[in-house]
Nucleic acid binder design. Sequence first.
DNA 1: CGAATTTATGAAAACATTTGCAATACTATT
DNA 2: AATAGTATTGCAAATGTTTTCATAAATTCG
Lengths: 343, 343
Amino acid sequence: MSNLQKGKVDIVAVAKAAKVSPSTVSRTFNHPNLVSPATRKKINRAVQKLGYIRNRAAQTMHGKRSGTIGLVVPTINHAIFAEVIQAFSDSIDKAGFSLLLASHGYDLDREYAMVRKFLEHRVDGVALVGLEHSDASTRLIEQQKIPALAIWNYSEDCILPCVGADNRLAGRLATEHLLALGHRNIGLIFPQTNGNDRAQHRISGVHAALTEMGISVPSEHESEAPYSVSQAKKAAISLLTERSRPTALLCGNDVIAQGALFAAQSLGLKVPDDLSIIGIGDFKGSADVEPGLTTIRIPAETIGKLAGERFTDYITSEDSAPFKICCELERVVRGTTSPVSVY
Amino acid sequence: MSNLQKGKVDIVAVAKAAKVSPSTVSRTFNHPNLVSPATRKKINRAVQKLGYIRNRAAQTMHGKRSGTIGLVVPTINHAIFAEVIQAFSDSIDKAGFSLLLASHGYDLDREYAMVRKFLEHRVDGVALVGLEHSDASTRLIEQQKIPALAIWNYSEDCILPCVGADNRLAGRLATEHLLALGHRNIGLIFPQTNGNDRAQHRISGVHAALTEMGISVPSEHESEAPYSVSQAKKAAISLLTERSRPTALLCGNDVIAQGALFAAQSLGLKVPDDLSIIGIGDFKGSADVEPGLTTIRIPAETIGKLAGERFTDYITSEDSAPFKICCELERVVRGTTSPVSVY
DNA sequence: CGAATTTATGAAAACATTTGCAATACTATT
DNA sequence: AATAGTATTGCAAATGTTTTCATAAATTCG
């Protein structure tokens, strides 16, 4: 009760209370085996009594790790990123790190600013979503020799270590599923690809697969929609009321696919009989709509977890060999796709 | 090119390169008006050339603010928290702060651990979700005299400053809407209330409103479901297949309500003709289901934004008067509720 | 032109910790 | 019992900044 919150409760206050030197207190924390059990007990009692809390800022100044990892995402407020963030956070927490989080709203200049901000905080590593970043960011990471990680996308020729899935393949898998069901007249709804390499890769995978089959998509069947169910719904409605309606809709992500599904339902189209819909992502909720959404599952949780584990390893171990991990995609066939109807 | 990443690029390296003293460099950053434009230019050039980045750890040691705010949420991976986190993050970012984020998975002991962890990082403030916290956490905050904020819930008799909505009122509003439509046989599906004061308050508001009307809910019409569409769907199905089916379902949050909606649809019940459903929250997506979900809107974004603004104010200004802000709820009537049918 | 201000800069102490080195105390060995 | 070795502790320097105080240079004013 006496000298609790007396303002300055630092390591020397503890030392004084335990009648030892500050060095010994520090050692009790950092190398407990170097200090005798008896003094350790004295010190712990003093720590308790004074309510002492270690100061990582001071530790950091000594070249010790700050114990923080910075993660920059495009946005926190999307189901899919929230899932990655959660898994990543849990994962690095287990390794004793804290998460500094920031979002850039798909603006790569802001991404740079966020990385810089994190560097000021002397994070032990920075994780970024995607493979496309501004030159400034790349240079900064290079110069400062800060461990960096690309999350979410996988690519062989990525400069940074990465943990993610192959979005090109995701696009291809979705396409091949529709093709296998006999669809040849396929509509595409994708988000803007600008500064969004996930979408870029996906759509390029789609086009590759289509071209191989000699299929091309007329421009009126190719539409752009933001990451929003309601706006995707609008886009889908206008696409579906074109003269020649496609038999299937391939959507750049599950949110768009959900919008498309609602659009179809509001137009009185039967899914999957009149129209097949496939998404990419398998977001929470995709299984639950009626009918369940067929999609290409990107294992967000696995990616986040793995990324956290490997990255903290990479940071803490001496012999840090860069790594690239490709997480498996999975085709999840539910109720929104069926063979093209013969009519 | 020469002495870029030579390891130690600190303020004295910059000083040397600019041929001034470290003090002057420091001043250029902190009190630029105290240093002549000419030297300022020299210094900036040196900073550029060396790629110097300020070290907040060292600043923090001087009693300067660390520039971080810790936010502890139950979970990141729920639409509604993701939205608050996003808004809070943006908001504090504008004030120059960085966000340290952690989740506790509805375990108040872990919440304590996270707060402690943040304290080690010398955050300038901690924000917690909800009003119910372990004694240990409360004591810790008290002892360390760290600015703290309760987000999400509003209550007059809250010890901490708070920014949030009145969940009791939310429950009451939802109930009154159903009552006004003539419903008397109401089913309840709520999440576990243990360690979740949001749910607790909502359900107590519901019961209060019902009791005032002399209505009681038979226990077989009261069900518990976790925060998951599919599990809520299951719970709703078993509730709706009881002998005496309620005419309306009041759900503890929109995720549960969505599950209930899907449940009704899969049972062939017409919503809202055969069954009215109301949720609480107004999550992203609630407007987009078919029919649109009637709900009590909790303004997550406003809460996050306001919380960030007021909290950073509170932290940075000297005359920090504690504050309590109650954010307005709004009844959003969409397609899932209608007057009870006369039969 | 000299005194009184004002402006610009530097020197050094302070912040809370860690750690290499030195000193002391204890244990085992002959 | 003396010596060598080991276990435990303390001293002091170092980490990268900020800030107070002092000093020097430039400006203003009578």
